[in-house]
Amino acid sequence: MTISQYGRHQVTAGMQWPEWIFGSFVPIGAFFCTLEFAIVLKKHLAGEKVKKGEEA
């Protein structure tokens, strides 16, 4: 998605900003969600208590 927006030089309708800037937050956010999942999974497999809402 982000690469195609960058390649087509798509811009937003109102401000004429490049759309790939906003589209890049989707894979960045997915990376951080995966990282958090891996940290909690590691704690769970190690037998540590993981509290609901606990930050890693």
Results as ranks from 00 to 15, higher is better:
Lys49Trp: 12
Gln16Ser: 02
Glu48Leu: 06
Lys42Ile: 01
Lys52Trp: 12
Gly29Val: 07
Glu19Met: 09
Tyr6Phe: 02
Lys43Tyr: 04
Met15Arg: 14
Gly23Gln: 02
Trp17Arg: 08
Ser24Asp: 05
Ile39Pro: 03
Pro18Tyr: 05
Gln5Arg: 04
Ser24Cys: 07
Val26Gln: 06
Ala30Pro: 00
Lys43Asn: 00
Trp20His: 08
Lys52Ala: 01
Ile3Trp: 01
Leu41Tyr: 10
Thr12Gln: 10
Ile21Met: 04
Gly7Ile: 03
Cys33Glu: 13
Leu45Lys: 15
His9Glu: 01
Arg8Val: 07
Phe32Arg: 05
Trp20Gln: 07
Pro18Glu: 03
His9Asn: 09
Met1Val: 04
Phe22Met: 05
Gly23Ser: 10
Met1His: 11
Gly7Ser: 08
Thr34Ser: 09
Glu48Trp: 04
Ala46Gly: 07
Lys52Asn: 11
Lys51Glu: 08
Val40Pro: 00
Ala30Gln: 12
His9Thr: 04
Met1Pro: 05
Ala56Arg: 04
Glu48Asn: 11
Lys49Ala: 02
Tyr6Val: 01
Tyr6Met: 00
Phe37Asn: 03
Lys52Gly: 06
Val40Leu: 04
Glu19Tyr: 12
Gly14Ala: 14
Gln10Leu: 05
Glu55Phe: 10
Met15Lys: 15
Ile3Leu: 03
Ile21Tyr: 14
Trp17Lys: 15
Lys51Leu: 04
Gly29Arg: 09
His9Leu: 06
Gln16Tyr: 09
Val11Pro: 09
His9Asp: 02
Phe37Met: 03
Phe31Gly: 00
Ala56Asp: 02
Ala13Lys: 15
Gly53Lys: 06
Ala46Glu: 03
Ala13Cys: 08
Met1Arg: 10
Gln10Pro: 06
Phe37Ala: 00
Lys42Asp: 01
Gly47Ile: 13
Thr12Val: 12
Ala30Gly: 11
Gly29Phe: 15
Gln16Ala: 12
Met15Ser: 07
Gly23Ala: 00
Val26His: 04
Glu54Asn: 00
Gly47Val: 09
Leu45Met: 09
Lys51Val: 10
Ile39Thr: 02
Glu54Val: 05
Ser4Trp: 07
Met15Cys: 11
Leu41Ala: 12
Thr12Phe: 02
Ala56Trp: 10
Ile21Pro: 11
Gly7Cys: 14
Ala30Glu: 11
Ile39Gln: 00
Phe31Ile: 06
Lys42Trp: 07
Glu19Val: 15
Gln10Met: 03
Ile3Ala: 02
Glu55Pro: 08
His44Met: 02
Trp17Tyr: 14
Leu35Ser: 09
Ser4Lys: 13
Lys49Thr: 05
Gly29Gln: 12
Gly7Arg: 15
Pro18Gln: 04
Ile3Tyr: 12
Cys33His: 13
Val40Glu: 05
Thr2His: 01
